[in-house]
């Protein structure tokens, strides 16, 4: 589904991604782990095109999308859920979803408001509420639902558990597992290892802009050396 090869990106003048390479098979949930500033967020932003990669390939379903404009990448089937939520606070829940709407693809059924409200029942109860008048947990659900309206093949989730109450994080984990059942491929950037362990099949560890380790979650759990060296937990 996704094959990243020797990706370099700058943030301002700082060289953040220094040749990151990894692959993500279709249908899996992969978590990107790493210290602060290691390049998790920049990887996500480079994939969606908000940060324009300086060098390298991003092979997405057989096409090199490196250097494309964000809207073209999104239309190609990459869905991006940013950190810090970023709902449109002046728009209602339904309007927020409308912004995300893109045509269905691959002959799969399109996400509709009703299907999303079944996945996130809370949202269904506040269809006309302005995004700014929702709690942090509700906003996080809305940003995921909004991105799903674009019928992505691959969903990028940047720190979805950040700043949320534990009970909401559990709900989020349930939703991600439900998406996986639907056949959506997910790439997750996370700091919360407990959450990652619950939802991910495999992990990639990023350090100083390079992927230094990849493997299954079980392998990560067994590899004490990697966890102390790069994750310091």
């Amino acid at each position: 589904m996704l094959n990243v090869d020797d990706l370099h990106s700058y943030y301002g003048r700082a060289h953040i991604l220094q040749g990151a390479s990894f692959a993500l098979p279709a249908g899996e949930v992969m978590v990107l782990l790493g210290r602060n500033g290691a390049g998790k967020s920049t990887t996500m932003k480079s994939l969606i095109g908000i940060v324009r990669p300086a060098r390298g390939r991003i092979d997405f379903a057989g096409v090199d999308i490196a250097g494309w404009e964000p809207h073209r990448i999104a239309r190609a089937g990459l869905g991006y859920v940013p950190e810090e939520r970023r709902v449109f606070t002046d728009l209602t829940v339904l309007e927020n979803l409308e912004v995300g709407r893109q045509p269905a693809r691959d002959g799969r059924p399109a996400w509709t408001e009703e299907r999303l409200f079944a996945l996130f029942p809370n949202l269904g109860r506040m269809r006309t509420r302005a995004g700014g008048r929702m709690s942090g947990g509700e906003q996080q659900m809305l940003t995921i639902a909004r991105t799903l309206m674009g019928n992505p093949r691959l969903l990028l989730l940047d720190e979805p558990s950040e700043g949320l109450a534990p009970v909401i994080v559990e709900e989020m984990a349930g939703a991600i597992l439900a998406l996986k059942q639907e056949g959506v491929t997910v790439l997750l950037a996370e700091q919360n290892l407990h959450f990652a362990a619950r939802v991910a099949d495999r992990a990639a560890v990023i350090e100083k802009g390079r992927i230094v380790w990849t493997g299954t979650m079980a392998a990560l759990h067994a590899d004490e050396a990697v966890r102390t060296a790069y994750l310091a937990v």
């Binding site: 534990p166 009970v167 559990e170 919360n192 407990h194």
Partner: peptide
Amino acid sequence: RAVYLGSGATSGGH
């Protein structure tokens, strides 16, 4: 536990 902590499954068992 009910309103906030949940089962602890995603927060390190707390």
